[in-house]
């Protein structure tokens, strides 16, 4: 069990989140069941008041969650100093069986919360508040996801054994290991790269066609291809080391925290891409998505180019 100041801080905030999210959950259920825009009785007015509270609580949780996610990764990095064998957060995530699920769930929840906020924004613009019932219905599901995440986080920190030897990221992400990840490395880099750039090209084409579903679909695929190529190819250029494939080490200060920029660009770009399909399509969302996705591609390509200029060879 771990009780470093960082873990304590995360726990305190989690407790706070649970309290507020539960309040919002109870109110959401009420609103979802009884919402009637045409009614003029006392109950409906009260529900409308509650909807404001709900919205602000969810907004609060989301806006704290974003920096807190970075802090969470930071914390994992720090814990990796205590665990034997761990060099970066990958080792800590791998230390328990819950780590991987937790990270996936955390990222998923970020997307879901962001989607909720977008929906909320649309709802506020609409004078009939068409989405109100929908958005609180979605929040009910979101609440369950969120609670699972917090529970998992608690369990993970509770079950980390300081004395147990954990794997280092270079062994988890090595081509010789027999995990699912290692199958990535058996793929041809040329094919991978052409898929990655081809995918990006598709996004540009769909941008001009303004087909919302195809645009969103290509964005979903882009998340996958971007992550795979990041692990298999681009990461090695950040480390300037052909054998190191860890997608978490470049979050450390040794690499100027470049990972935070990379993941942020990818998150914003793909999120806006998805929101095109899930919400009303707007020119702005298309544009933001395209700009951030392009920045992501440009940044990674630049790393390769700079490496090539400096060293004259490719890895």
């Amino acid at each position: 069990m771990l009780l470093t100041p960082e873990v304590l801080t995360l726990s305190i905030l989690n407790v706070l989140f649970v309290i507020f999210a539960t309040i919002a959950f109870v109110l959401s259920v009420k609103i979802y069941l009884n919402w009637d825009m045409n009614s003029t009785n006392q109950k409906q007015y009260q529900l409308e008041k509650y909807s404001f509270l709900n919205a602000i609580v969810i907004k609060y949780i989301f806006f704290i969650k974003i920096p807190l996610f970075l802090f969470f990764i930071f914390t994992l990095d720090k814990i990796s100093n205590i665990l034997t064998g761990a060099m970066c957060s990958a080792g800590v995530i791998d230390a328990t069986e819950y780590g991987t699920y937790l990270i996936v769930l955390k990222i998923l929840n970020l997307y879901l919360f962001a989607y909720w906020l977008k929906l909320h924004q649309q709802d506020k613009k609409d004078e009939k508040q068409l989405y109100t019932k929908l958005k609180f219905g979605i929040y009910i599901a979101l609440y369950l996801f969120f609670m699972v995440e917090i529970a998992l986080e608690g369990i993970m920190f509770y079950s980390i054994d300081i004395n147990k030897l954990v794997s280092c990221c270079s062994s988890i992400y090595s081509s010789s290991s027999t995990s699912a990840i290692s199958t990535i490395f058996s793929l041809n880099t040329k094919i991978l790269l052409s898929i990655f750039y081809g995918n990006f090209f598709l996004i540009i084409i769909f941008y001009f066609f303004k087909n919302r579903y195809l645009f969103a679909l290509s964005n979903i695929i882009f998340i996958v291809t971007a992550l795979i190529t990041l692990i298999a190819f681009f990461g090695t250029y950040i480390y300037e080391l052909p054998s190191h494939h860890c997608p978490l080490c470049f979050l450390k200060s040794e690499y100027n925290y470049i990972g935070y920029l990379i993941y942020l660009l990818l998150f914003i770009g793909t999120f806006y891409g998805l929101s095109v399909a899930l919400l009303k399509k707007s020119r702005k969302n298309y544009k933001i998505s395209l700009i951030f996705n392009s920045l992501y591609v440009i940044l990674l390509s630049l790393i390769i180019i700079v490496y090539y200029i400096k060293n004259g060879v490719l890895l």
């Binding site: 801080t9 305190i12 905030l13 706070l16 704290i64 920096p67 802090f71 930071f74």
Partner: peptide
């Protein structure tokens, strides 16, 4: 960052 998370969000909450 640690001190920030222990003060500002809690106050706002």
């Amino acid at each position: 960052a640690l001190i920030f998370f222990l003060s500002v969000p809690i106050y706002i909450a």
